[in-house]
């Protein structure tokens, strides 16, 4: 007999001084996560992920928290059981408050993740919280320049073809650091795929 899970409740509009204090300009608490996952010794191709979250009428969501969790450029997670004890120069986890910049985007400085297995394409995992979301949503970012491995990804393959593209970022050109744009649509025609992960 299992105990009942503690129910989720919305993060509400006022989380930033507690969860993303530095980004939001509060100095009473240190920040445990930032929007940059790279350090000086990080190996791999640095990239920027940026995106906007749109609600059901296309308005930009300016009070969301986006968390990312991804493998390093070699496809490893920090606390992967087989790798315990190996110091990591890459922070697999990041947080961004969409209220913390003028355009209300989420922006992450990171590296292109490696493959974690032959059955998965490189991807970044996202958890999204906001006022009006009573329980968080899970989604994933895939890469447009990984067409071959995307075709073999066991998670993408479970999604109807016409919705798969909501999970593939768009590569923006003209910068020295590659920028991948990943916009999130909470509702409507272009509604992003959310997982019961």
């Amino acid at each position: 007999m299992l105990l009942k899970q503690t129910p989720s409740q919305t993060i509400g509009p006022f989380f930033s001084y507690g969860l993303t204090p530095k980004q939001a300009g509060y100095n009473k608490l240190s920040s445990l996560a930032s929007s940059s996952l790279v350090t000086e010794s990080t190996i791999g191709a640095q990239i920027r992920i940026e995106g906007t979250i749109f609600d059901g009428v296309g308005d930009i969501v300016s009070d969301a928290m986006v968390e990312i969790w991804q493998a390093d450029s070699q496809g490893r997670y920090q606390n992967q059981p087989s790798l315990e004890g190996i110091g990591s120069s890459f922070l697999n986890f990041g947080r961004c408050d969409t209220g913390a910049n003028d355009q209300n985007k989420f922006v992450f400085e990171t590296v292109k993740p490696g493959q974690i297995s032959t059955k998965t394409a490189p991807h970044i995992n996202l958890v999204i919280f906001m006022r009006g979301l009573l329980s968080h949503v899970f989604t994933r970012i895939y890469f447009p320049d990984e067409k071959n491995s995307n075709l073999l990804d066991e998670t993408l393959l479970t999604i109807p073809a016409y919705r798969q593209e909501t999970l593939v970022a768009k590569k923006l050109s003209g910068e020295s650091t590659p920028i991948y744009e990943f916009n999130i649509h909470l509702q409507g025609e272009k509604e992003t795929v959310f997982f019961d992960a």
Binding site: T10, G56, Q70, N79, T155, Q187, E191, F195
Partner: peptide, 29 residues
């Protein structure tokens, strides 16, 4: 009755996912 959910709730069913290494690992502090 919680108005902000009206334009912010997913309208399509969540897609069930077989958990991979990405789901069963997590940040450690």
């Amino acid at each position: 009755s919680y108005k902000s959910t009206v334009l912010r709730s997913p309208t399509k069913p969540l897609i069930p996912m077989k958990q991979t290494l990405s789901e069963i690992t997590g940040p450690v502090y």
